[in-house]
Simulated assay, not measured.
Amino acid sequence: MSIGNSPEDDRPSIGRVLQQARIAAGLTVEEVSSSTRVRIPIVHAIEDDDFSRCGGDVYARGHIRTVARAVGIDPEPLVQQYDAEHGGRPVPTPAAPLFEAERIRSEPRRPNWTAAMVAAIVAVVGFVGFTLFSGEDEGTSTAHVAEGSSPDKATAKPTPTKPADPKPVPSESAIAAAPLDKVTVKLSATQGKSWISAKDHSGQTLFDGLLLQGQSKTFQDEERVDLVLGNAGSIELFVNGKKVEDQFESGQVERLSYTKGDPEAG
């Protein structure tokens, strides 16, 4: 009795699927390379199911996703097929403690109403004592008052101590200083979604996945953080508490590296 091939053995290869989708979309390899920033030889190699030129599994997954979106197909089944054929996705290493500057805010000082009330009571008691004392002396000092004039009676009211004005709450744009002994990188997807990969100085993966619009990720390491941005134009980047002003284009793939101090792309 013969055993037939499983359905998975009969499915087309990753490169074949991407090539057929590109042809169906009416695109050339040069046009796909131009829109994804993946070099022409690498696009040819991927369509031939040769992923050795991608530079590793992380980059291979990123190229598969980028090319698949460029030719108009869903990349996730192809990435899952790649993981099944190449030993699976590595378990990501937990990221270093996140540095979330937005949570570090000084609390506004509240008015000390108890101290104000005590001061007011002391002022009232002193005023009453002064009035009684002045009343006792008034009988003996009447003869010394000039004719036609009358002594002014104290009518001053106690003034309560004004509570201290609360300190203003820091604005939303205020960002606490990043620690000088570490490198801190914050990514925010402000213009759309983007696939990102982050590694520490030893090459361990901190994150490898999709960052949706409106989401943020913060990474921290003792020496260096390496990044790969699949759609760099959608990312707002802060390094060591300072915004990076590089003008990345939509769909652009960027490989960056940052260390301690002023942001400096590697």
Rank of each mutant, 00 (worst) to 15 (best):
R110V: 09
P75G: 09
Q81S: 01
K217Q: 15
H144N: 08
T155W: 10
M117P: 00
P168R: 02
P12R: 00
S234H: 07
N112S: 08
A68H: 02
S257F: 14
R37W: 06
E30P: 07
P158Y: 05
T161V: 15
L98M: 15
Q80A: 01
T155Y: 11
F219W: 10
P94N: 07
P7C: 03
V29Y: 05
V118G: 03
V253M: 06
S234E: 03
V183M: 06
F99G: 13
P92S: 04
A265L: 15
Q252P: 10
E147C: 13
K153M: 11
K199T: 09
G88I: 11
R61L: 09
H63D: 00
A84S: 12
V183G: 03
L78S: 04
D74C: 06
Q81E: 02
R109P: 02
I104G: 04
R255P: 06
Y59C: 03
E107N: 10
S13C: 01
S216H: 02
G15W: 00
A101I: 04
A176Y: 01
G126H: 05
V43G: 08
T131E: 14
I42A: 00
S173D: 12
V29L: 11
L180E: 00
V17M: 05
L211T: 01
S149T: 15
Q191N: 04
H201L: 06
W113Y: 07
I196F: 02
P77G: 02
E264N: 13
I46C: 08
E85P: 09
A45M: 10
T93F: 15
A95C: 15
K182A: 13
Y59G: 08
T36L: 01
V125G: 06
A24F: 03
Y82W: 12
I73G: 04
E31I: 06
A176W: 03
G148K: 08
A24S: 11
M117S: 02
L27I: 01
L229W: 08
G55C: 05
D57Y: 07
V244C: 05
Q80C: 04
R109K: 13
G15Y: 00
T161H: 08
G241A: 03
E47G: 12
P77Q: 02
A174Y: 12
L210R: 01
T131W: 11
L256Y: 08
P92I: 14
D165A: 15
G261R: 10
I3M: 09
A120F: 15
R65N: 07
P94K: 09
V58T: 14
K186V: 03
I46L: 13
T66C: 05
P97E: 15
V253Q: 04
E245Y: 07
I14V: 05
T28M: 10
V228E: 07
E100C: 13
G233T: 03
A24W: 01
Q20T: 07
S141I: 07
T93S: 13
G72C: 05
K157R: 13
D10I: 10
P163A: 03
I42D: 00
V91D: 09
G251P: 11
R53C: 04
P160A: 11
A60M: 08
G62M: 04
D208C: 10
G203Y: 10
P170M: 01
T140P: 01
L227F: 07
V71K: 02
A68C: 07
I121S: 00
V67N: 02
A143N: 05
G148Y: 05
S171Q: 11
M117R: 08
R224Q: 14
I42Y: 00
A156C: 12
D152G: 03
A232V: 12
A178R: 00
F207V: 12
D49N: 11
D48V: 04
D246K: 09
F248G: 08
